[in-house]
């Protein structure tokens, strides 16, 4: 059963059409990677899913519930918008941790503002998540004292704390030194199979090949090709995908 249904998403910045009629669906527990060259619309698509950009038309449904409709999103109340966006989590390329707070506080801040759980439950959950990303010794450290890889792992724990249905990663290793990408990819890999449904925009082809259940190749704001990793990487059909793959390997 599809947990996410995206239909006919269109988005322009001024006169530039960035997303031209994007549709796809995703099953619970699946990992979808989105690949494509710079400017193909991958990041914009993720930002539309997280309501950081608003698609002009198209719909997004999670668990058969319509959470976004491009035609009438302006009528949506702030509270509804926030409620709906919590189906998604987003890990940014630049981490965007809150620098004034410790690792622990970064993870607990949003859940304690939402007040869905007691402070004890939130604390316990945060500890477990920080441990899961392997940073239990850094609980009381400030982001500035952490490496990029560690910061990104905190950002993953922070996103997981709200238990999103679908966790999105926007080029999670692109801002990292090559020797630090491994630890972050390892964490993402470890989430697979935990019921986590994930969408990963990435340039790490090896990682995409290995972790994805499905791969989407985007070009010029359209889904040029999609399929299993074997199909997309092993047997690419379109010329653009062939060219892209030969350039990135």
């Amino acid at each position: 059963m599809a947990i996410l249904e995206v239909e006919n998403i269109k988005k322009s910045f001024g006169k530039t059409e960035v997303l031209k009629d994007i549709s796809f669906s995703l099953n619970k527990g699946e990992v979808l990677t989105i690949i494509g060259s710079l400017g193909s619309g991958k990041t914009t698509l993720l930002r539309c899913l997280n309501f950081l950009e608003f698609a002009e038309s198209g719909t997004i449904s999670v668990r058969d519930k319509l959470v976004y409709n491009g035609e009438n999103h302006k009528k949506l109340k702030d509270a509804e918008l926030r409620e709906n966006r919590l189906h998604f989590g987003l890990v940014f390329q630049q981490f965007n941790l809150f620098p004034q707070y410790t690792v622990k506080k970064n993870v607990t801040l949003a859940p304690s503002l939402l007040k869905r759980n007691t402070p004890e439950e939130i604390e316990e959950k945060a500890n477990a998540l920080i441990k899961r990303v392997g940073l239990e010794e850094k609980c009381d450290s400030y982001p500035a004292t952490l490496s990029g890889g560690q910061q990104q792992r905190v950002a993953i724990a922070r996103a997981l704390a709200l238990e999103p249905d679908i966790l999105c990663f926007d080029e999670p290793t692109s801002a990292l030194d090559p020797e630090l990408t491994g630890e972050v990819l390892k964490v993402i890999r470890s989430l697979k199979g935990h019921d986590s449904t994930m969408i990963v925009v990435t340039h790490e082809m090896q990682f995409a090949k290995e972790v994805s259940d499905r791969v989407i190749f985007m070009a010029d704001g359209k889904i040029e090709e999609e399929g299993t990793p074997d199909e997309v990487f092993g047997n690419p059909k379109s010329e653009r995908l062939k060219a892209f793959l030969s350039n990135s390997l």
């Binding site: 702030d78 926030r82 966006r85 998604f88 987003l90 940014f92 965007n96 809150f98 503002l113």
Partner: peptide, 24 residues
């Protein structure tokens, strides 16, 4: 990115101002 991180975490505009932006 700080504001966006707050938004994605479901914070209100007021919470983002007081809890995220203000001290920075």
């Amino acid at each position: 990115g700080q504001r966006e991180a707050g938004e994605v975490l479901g914070m209100t505009k007021t919470q983002i101002f007081f809890k995220v932006t203000l001290l920075q």
